[in-house]
Design a protein around this nucleic acid. Structure first.
Length: 393
DNA sequence: GACACGTGGAG
DNA sequence: TCTCCAAGTGT
């Protein structure tokens, strides 16, 4: 154990954990901070302290807590990928009501599943979730594989999510690595490489493994795992961490060096391109024409408005179908921001007074305006249609 | 390693 | 308004 701890403390070739500067030197001479006072964080007590803190001061009443049902744990972990707790709670409860177990999910069609994910984002998660359910029914006799390594072979489940499921459902000692853990570790161990960089991520994973390896066999892995995330979410927060409330503050490198707001170091950001499109809101007899988005791709599997590069393309497509494009009214435009581009949307409302497109073309569907609640709409499309419905009323 | 993939909350 | 980024994974 001492060897492992020492190896970690010393930092490895190319790693960014720093050797403590020699004693008598000062890191910030103007502040008079004696570097000799800075201790390399000890590894062994970390996990037990976090575990005990979780039991005392962590979160215990989130909807997916208090169960060891892998299905519920899995669902929550997928929904929580890159998504804040507050956004997930409602979706989680509605989803479970409709699909209470893995068998009901596997038996459903993707079109039955997507409405329960619409608005949550990252729709490949829902498609993979559905595929995963069917795979578990078909190849794992309806129950989750017994180890994190096996769980991680399933669609939509990477190393961290697999570890979380195994830790919460089985108590397996596999570490997770998410935004919370990343922030806590970067600060506590003074890891200052850019997050996302391969070497930094490798160092973080290795740190996570060493902590678990150094912990006593009595460690409650579920509580430790939860505690790590609770710590990052409620104490070691991004903006202004509450170091006074932190159970591991004494050895935290960031706190000792006043670098709480510098760590973790974000990776450099790229310019976000702008895109434009026009969307057709074709209304006929209280119904609107929707078009299913191809997957993979943005909004894959959801039902959106027919989309065109610009107003001219929209108009010629209308005319080609015998629709009076000249009667289309331009509605208020809106800007929708994605991670990797910004989309300017110009919606055009066309109310057909005579029967048009009696049969919806392939990949399209007439949807009653009063059934949009249950439709799998992208967020901005829902916004557009809500505006239209209130206008027509 | 780079990029695709959503949405909304916080500061 | 604008930036950052949240219980990441797949290609």
């Amino acid at each position: 154990m001492a060897a492992a701890k020492n190896k970690h403390a010393a930092g490895r070739d190319g790693g960014s954990v720093r050797h403590p500067p020699p004693p008598q030197q000062t890191l910030f001479p103007e502040d008079g901070v004696a570097v000799g006072d800075i201790q390399v964080p000890p590894l062994e007590p970390f996990a037990p302290i976090v575990m005990q803190w979780q039991k005392r001061a962590g979160r215990h009443h989130l909807p997916w807590q208090g169960t060891r049902d892998p299905y519920r744990i899995w669902l929550s972990e997928i929904m929580l990928q890159q998504t804040q707790v507050s956004a997930v709670i409602g979706y989680y409860q509605r989803f479970l009501e409709r699909f209470p177990d893995i068998r009901s999910l596997a038996a459903a069609s993707q079109d039955e599943v997507m409405p329960y994910w619409a608005g949550l984002g990252y729709y490949a998660r829902a498609r993979n979730l559905h595929r995963c359910a069917q795979e578990i029914i078909a190849h794992w006799n309806g129950s989750f594989p017994p180890t994190a390594e096996q769980i991680s072979t399933l669609p939509g489940i990477g190393r961290s999510t697999a570890a979380a499921i195994a830790a919460f459902a089985y108590g397996e000692r596999s570490p997770i690595m998410d935004g919370n853990v990343r922030r806590v570790f970067c600060r506590y161990f003074g890891i200052d490489g850019p997050t996302g960089k391969t070497s930094t991520e490798a160092e973080l994973w290795e740190t996570a493994e060493r902590i678990v390896a150094a912990a006593p066999a009595s460690l409650d892995m579920a509580a430790y795992t939860q505690g790590l995330m609770d710590l990052g979410a409620t104490v070691c927060t991004r903006g202004m961490p509450d170091c006074a409330a932190c159970p591991v503050n004494t050895h935290c490198i960031a706190r000792q060096t006043g670098r709480q707001t510098e760590l973790p170091v974000p990776r450099q950001k790229k310019a976000v391109p702008e895109r434009h499109c026009s969307m057709l809101v074709l209304v006929r007899e209280g119904q609107v024409l929707l078009e299913q988005r191809p997957s993979p791709g943005i909004w894959g599997g959801l039902w959106s408005l027919p989309q065109f590069d610009d107003a001219e393309a929209l108009a010629s497509a209308c005319e080609a179908q015998g629709l009076p494009a000249a009667n289309a009214q331009r509605m208020a435009g809106l800007l929708h921001v994605f991670t990797h581009f910004r989309l300017h949307i110009d919606p055009w409302l066309l109310q057909a007074t005579v029967p048009v497109l009696q049969e919806a073309p392939a990949g399209k569907r007439w949807t009653p305006l009063d059934a949009l609640d249950q439709a799998a709409l992208p967020a901005p499309v829902r916004k557009i249609l809500e505006g239209i419905v209130s206008t027509l009323r």
